[in-house]
């Protein structure tokens, strides 16, 4: 059986809220290392990969591999019934028909319980190769969100170019062009505002802004975001969570002329 207690229901609420417009029905794969999810969007252009490690829960118990097939709209309806500060416990039997969610208020004796009917989801897992990325950019998640939103006002696509001088986000559209360039930057007092660019070779790739703006819905999960790029491979956008858990998005590039 599965029994996993999250100190803050808000974490799962934010994760599901961030991915529910990209993917609809997902398997939450539970085993003794934690709760994982991998799902592609309908167009097979973007992929969500979530890992909530066992250490993110206290306690965490999962005796055998259980796939919980859940419709994210249904899950969101139930998660909205939780207060942000509530403690959340996920429970399921070994061959479950439902997943049980219990919300406990830390301040009162209120206890609420919901069951969500599970679905049989035949989901293909893609093998994501271990990649040594040519460029890794760590920046404030709010800054990345702002750049994507600003450039989307002008164009459907953004070119991301990383060189030793910095990272340039540029676009061109019907009304004109736009570009934002960031250089490495260290803010001693507010390290969350740092921009770090680790580069082994220059990279230039083009991506759809519609997807990037969608990924940025995860900005509330982490003050920083990591962009990993190599020429001619999908972009990795990673929001790190506590206890080495993470929410990752992969986006296939636009290629050719």
């Amino acid at each position: 059986m599965l029994e996993a207690r999250l100190e803050q229901a808000n974490l799962l609420k934010k994760v599901v809220d961030a991915i529910k417009d990209l993917v609809q029905d997902c398997n939450f794969d539970c085993n003794d290392s934690g709760v994982a999810l991998q799902a592609m969007d309908n167009s097979h252009v973007a992929l969500v990969s979530m890992m909530l490690k066992a250490e993110s829960f206290s306690p965490f118990r999962c005796d055998r591999n259980i796939a919980l097939g859940i419709n994210l709209t249904s899950l969101m309806k139930v998660l909205r019934c939780a207060q942000n500060e509530d403690i959340l416990t996920l429970k399921a039997e070994d061959a479950p028909d439902v997943v049980n969610l219990v919300f406990e208020s830390s301040e009162s004796d209120r206890l609420s319980e919901y069951d969500i009917k599970l679905m049989d989801i035949d989901q293909e897992h893609l093998g994501i190769p271990e990649t040594e990325y040519a460029a890794t950019i760590t920046m404030p998640s709010a800054e990345f969100q702002r750049i994507c939103r600003d450039l989307m006002a002008l164009s459907e696509s953004v070119a991301i170019e990383a060189t030793k001088d910095g990272v340039k986000f540029s676009c061109s559209g019907d009304i004109g062009n736009g570009a934002v360039t960031l250089r490495s930057h260290t803010n001693v007092e507010k390290p969350d505002l740092n921009v770090e660019i680790a580069l082994s070779e220059p990279v230039a790739l083009t991506f759809s802004l519609k997807y990037l703006v969608n990924f940025c819905k995860a900005s509330g999960l982490s003050s920083t975001v990591k962009l990993c790029l190599s020429n001619e491979v999908p972009l990795l956008v990673e929001y790190g969570l506590a206890s080495n858990s993470y929410l990752r998005f992969y986006l296939a590039p636009k290629i050719g002329d």
Binding site: H125, L126, S157, T206, A252, P253
Partner: peptide
Amino acid sequence: PPKQATLGKFFARP
């Protein structure tokens, strides 16, 4: 204009 690739081109199916 460049064409949108899909992930199947890069990530292996099981």
